[in-house]
Computed example of a mutant assay.
Amino acid sequence: MTGGLPLIVTRPEPGNAATVERATAMGFDVHATPLFAARPVEWRAPAAGDFDALLLTSAFAPRLAGAGIAGLSALPVYAVGAATARAAGAAGLTVAMTGTADAQRLLDAMTSANIRRILWLCGRERSEFDARGAAIVPLPCYAVDPVPPPAGWAELIAAPAVLLAHSPRAATRLASLVGAARAHLSLAAISPAVAAAAGEGWREVAVAERPDDVAILAQARALWHKGTK
């Protein structure tokens, strides 16, 4: 899959490098342009016995939580996406369920199983969703901060390209940064919520069937094929 539209990967590291590697193996003309950087923030683990389960919606939580996450190892983990589940396992946690859609769908499954006291190890900035009557306690253990676009960004988005959006914040920032250029740019979003955050006016928008790299890159490939016609 040579030539055609460039693929612009905007997620923070270390995810950016992993996506770039996978996309390069697929034959994309890949450009690594992280627009955010993740870092740990100070936090303290509460008593695990006060909760029924641990909700993880991003791999950054188990990766950046540090030693304190060991205090939560008794809780079953409900993780959004395979990458988050793998990071939880690497941190010594036990994954009870891996959601293949978004956080809301996973939470619905949890409440249907009568899981009511939920600790959400999350980022400083986070999306909102319907608790469905559960008591959800958000506990930030990391932050994802914007960084300036890298050199060559303006030239890269001046021509048709496919961009990846892995989070609602990324989609919102992309929409702001590209402005009117979205008319000739295509977007592959990792979930419907991410696509909604990107707004209207893109040349094409495709949504991954699952919240993981394999699924979003499959949509990027479909957009690439459309762009070559």
Rank of each mutant, 00 (worst) to 15 (best):
A87E: 08
A180Y: 09
G66Q: 04
P211K: 12
L107T: 07
R124W: 08
P6T: 12
T2V: 13
R44D: 03
V205S: 02
F36T: 01
I136W: 13
R132K: 15
G49F: 02
A165N: 10
L7N: 03
P168I: 03
P76C: 04
V80G: 05
T94W: 04
T2M: 13
A175Q: 13
A195M: 05
R221G: 05
A101C: 04
A82L: 09
A18C: 02
R116W: 13
P62M: 07
A87F: 05
A165C: 08
A188D: 01
V205R: 15
L163A: 15
A88S: 09
A197C: 13
S186F: 02
E200C: 06
T111V: 15
R132M: 14
T33I: 11
A23T: 00
A170H: 06
L163W: 05
H184A: 05
A101R: 15
A45G: 03
L107S: 01
V80W: 03
D29Y: 01
P76V: 01
I190H: 01
G133W: 15
G66C: 08
A83Q: 12
D102E: 07
L35A: 02
Q104I: 09
D213C: 04
R124C: 09
R126L: 06
I8C: 07
V80M: 03
P76L: 04
I118A: 07
D29T: 13
G89S: 10
A74G: 06
I136K: 12
A74C: 06
L5H: 05
T111D: 02
T33C: 06
L119H: 07
R124H: 12
A218K: 12
P138F: 15
R126Q: 14
E200M: 12
L5Q: 06
A165G: 08
P76T: 02
A170M: 12
W224D: 05
A109G: 11
